[in-house]
Amino acid sequence: MPSRTPHRFRRTTALLTAVAACVALAGCSSAEPSASSSASSSAPGETESGSSGTSGSSGSTASTGPTGSTGSTGSSGTDEPDQPAPAHVSIPSIGVRSALMDLGLNADGTVEVPPAEKGMTAGWYTGGSAPGAPGPAVLIGHNDTRFGRAVFHDLKKIRKGAEVLVRDTAGKTLRFTVTGKETVDKKAFPTEKVYGPTKDSTLRLITCDGEFDAQGHPVDNLIVYGALG
């Protein structure tokens, strides 16, 4: 039986290629109202509420991953078929509690983010690893939307050592510990650091941060890094 490692390597390479082409990743909002749509998306790290695209429905819809690979709630978008998909995230220290919707890629190759009208709901990018499986699991949430405060509004307050609890569809709760955070310019998004392969299960929480540009888009991304255990 072939080893899983080559498959994971190819999937990670495809993921990095797709993400590198898009620049960065985050759930963001525009300072200006925009037309409602079923999803918010843009080049990852330049996402804005109300842009076109399609969004995975909460905890149920499989999304198309990088280079056409398909991640489903059964396979969690990874090479670990027994790893359940994540269903809920909570961060007790900053009062975050949210179901997780599935997020994939839009037709133009950009990464989906939760729709603006579901700003208080975070999403899991199915093209990456599932929490608990080797590699980085990416959770995306808005800071604010045109509807107001959103799920990751207080993410900037999180501190090193804080717990992030992720419950999967089997009812198991995984405990991640925050190892660090950084604010980066979207034009200098650390793709390899965020999406690159990791031996152990790791977590990335991403949202927008910083001042607004002339078009009303936040110029930075806030990235929180976590490790299982």
Rank of each mutant, 00 (worst) to 15 (best):
E48I: 07
Q83R: 09
G65S: 03
S30C: 11
L139I: 11
R8D: 11
S55E: 05
A162V: 01
G53R: 05
A21K: 13
C22S: 13
L16E: 11
D154G: 04
G180A: 08
T121P: 01
H7Q: 10
C22I: 09
V19A: 01
A99D: 15
I158L: 08
A99T: 15
F176Y: 11
S129G: 10
L165T: 11
K193A: 08
R167L: 10
A39L: 06
F189H: 13
H142M: 05
S98P: 10
A188V: 12
M101I: 15
D168W: 05
T17D: 15
K186L: 13
P2S: 06
A20M: 13
E192M: 14
A170V: 12
E182A: 14
G226D: 08
T126P: 04
F176A: 07
S55M: 13
L103E: 05
H153I: 05
A137F: 13
S38M: 11
P84Y: 11
R146S: 13
L105S: 03
T17S: 13
G95D: 01
S75R: 03
R175N: 11
A170I: 12
S30F: 04
G68M: 03
G171V: 11
D200A: 10
T183E: 13
L100F: 04
M120K: 10
S36N: 14
G74C: 00
R11A: 01
T207E: 09
S30T: 06
D209C: 12
H217W: 14
L105V: 00
V224W: 05
A162N: 04
G50F: 07
H217T: 09
P190M: 14
P6Q: 04
T67R: 12
W124Y: 09
G71P: 07
W124Q: 02
S42T: 02
P2E: 01
E192D: 15
S29T: 12
S60Q: 11
P131C: 09
L15V: 09
E211S: 12
S129D: 07
K118P: 00
A170E: 14
D209P: 06
G229A: 09
A99E: 15
I91R: 07
G27W: 00
F176T: 00
Q83L: 00
G128D: 00
S41A: 14
K193P: 03
G148L: 10
G135I: 08
G104M: 03
A122G: 10
M101C: 15
V111M: 09
P134G: 06
A107L: 13
T177C: 12
E32L: 07
L105A: 00
L203H: 02
T12S: 07
G56L: 05
S52A: 14
T177H: 10
E192T: 15
M1L: 13
R4M: 06
C208A: 15
P134E: 03
S76E: 02
R204M: 08
T12I: 05
Y195V: 04
G71C: 03
T145E: 03
V194Q: 12
Y195P: 14
T126L: 03
D108P: 00
V111P: 07
P44N: 15
P115A: 02
A122D: 02
